[in-house]
Amino acid sequence: MKTFLRHVWVVLRYELADAVRSRRVVILLLLYLAGAMLTCNGFISAMHKLETQLADTLALPASSSAGAVTDALWRSKTFRRMVIGLVGNKEIALEILSVPPIAVIYGWLAFTFTPVLVMLSAAGRIAEEVSSGSVRYVLTRTSRPAWCLGKFMGQACEVLLALMLSAIGTWCLARFRMASAGDLETARWMVLYGWKAWIYSLAFIGLALGISQSVRSPYHAMGLGLVVLIVMGVLSVMARHFAGEGWRQLWQIADFIFPINQKMNLWRLQPAYVLNGSLYLVALGMAYLFAGYAVFSKRGG
């Protein structure tokens, strides 16, 4: 066991160092940072425009920074009732409304785009070493499980770094552009949502590396990963729509095998929900990883 853990640690460290050397991690960080900042900037601009128009209509003096009206709106009873109606669950809606709006926007962005970015960055990691044959130099020095787990953890560290950086970058942007988003409380919420999105991403890293172990070409692995994401999304929507009594209960299987359906637990603020969702997503990620390993272990390197 000690040797196994040492090998996992060595592979993890090399995976990170290799990502830095090959500039892969730099590209990943930039994608996360630019994606989060640009989208949040777009949201803030749209919000500011809306607020200015509203002020014009009401013949009130417009604010130079965005967010003042939105904050008031966020706290208003009418808006709260509307959100409760939209979410369909008072408890969840009130939890979301207790969070600063820019943090919710960041959380939504992180949860939505992290799976895609994970597929783009992780799906080729094992397949490219198998296709070039360089895996053979490693497999005489460590076991396949240790190597795969080291790769998984290396990818997880890269994504965590990217999410934290994007959270901090988005907070800095909000601090300059929004009236009330510059406090540390907002930063804390954004980092928390970054952390939750990372937990969510673990299932997708497992999925990406599971696919990577089953396919020999890195390009095929990446393509297949994106197709699987789309299919998962479509099936999840269909499951929500068609699930019911009798044979339609089969649609509920989607809840168990797709990580998308565990996302709502992570949005919650109560630790019991978050823990439940986190454990399920980590287990799901491991299940995907080992399903791919079942293929990888039976074939030559």
Partner: peptide, 25 residues
């Protein structure tokens, strides 16, 4: 690998080393 790592080595005929890696690393 737990028993033979470092005791048995392989020089494959047609496998590439990772091209972006530095030799010493």
């Amino acid at each position: 690998a737990r028993v033979h790592s470092g005791r048995v080595s392989l020089m494959p005929q047609d496998a590439e080393l990772p091209l972006h890696a530095r030799i010493c690393d």
